[in-house]
Simulated assay, not measured.
Amino acid sequence: MASVDQLDITPPHPPKEHAIEAFEHVEHEIKHAIVASRRDWDKHEPKMWALASQVSDHDLVNFTMKDDLVVVRSAVTSYGPIILGKIRIRAIKLDSAGELVPSEVEKDAHGKIKVETKHGKIDDDKLGFIFVRIHDPPGDGIENVKFHSLFTDEGKDKDGNNNGYYRAIQSNSKPLEFFNE
């Protein structure tokens, strides 16, 4: 298993075609993992998915990689490249402090969630994000891409003990960093 000290990870950048295709290949698994993670955490620590508490599972995973994978980073490991992705969750509206803004999910005629725009672009500073890690083993293009994990932030104090902070939904201001979960 790779650690951040062993990796030369690329700076954050918009996804190129290969990254979009790789994430699309495992999109169903990512969506399934999000719903399963939420259900599992809700049993023992509902704070983890609290920002999604007012959102249905369907709306939580109502994203596409083409439209909502906004930032990626990658690194080569001994077992092949890993790609980290920041996926926009249109149904989660956040305020400037990164806290939930209670609101109804509005949809267009095609069932796509409407979002606030700024100068014709989606205002990502008011939306939630999920961070995902995938593995792209050497070989057959995207056919071997595997879903690895979701980032769930369990705040730790200086002694490594949990400080009561849990968050699976991140604000846009949270940098996409390597995670090994």
Rank of each mutant, 00 (worst) to 15 (best):
L94Y: 00
K121G: 03
D136K: 12
E104T: 12
P102R: 02
S103C: 11
G128S: 08
H110M: 15
I92V: 13
H135S: 11
V132L: 10
I113V: 07
I122Y: 07
V101S: 01
D124M: 15
V101D: 00
G128R: 01
K107I: 09
I89S: 09
D95F: 04
E104D: 12
I130H: 03
K112L: 05
H110P: 04
A91I: 05
L94S: 03
D95A: 00
D124A: 06
D95G: 05
I92T: 02
R133K: 15
G128L: 04
H119Y: 13
K112I: 10
D125E: 13
H135Q: 11
A109N: 12
A97T: 08
R133S: 08
E116A: 09
K107N: 06
K107Q: 08
G98E: 06
I134D: 07
D123C: 07
K118T: 05
P137H: 10
F131K: 12
G111A: 05
L100R: 04
P138G: 15
G111I: 11
L94P: 02
K112D: 13
A97W: 00
A109I: 09
D108T: 05
D95K: 01
L94G: 02
L127D: 01
A91W: 10
S103D: 05
L94E: 03
A109D: 14
I92C: 01
V132W: 06
L100A: 00
D125I: 12
F131L: 06
A97F: 08
G111W: 10
K107L: 05
E104C: 06
R133F: 04
P102K: 02
L100D: 05
P138W: 14
L100N: 03
D124G: 12
I122E: 14
P102W: 02
H119I: 09
I130C: 12
D124V: 15
E104M: 12
S103R: 03
K107G: 02
E106Q: 14
D123T: 09
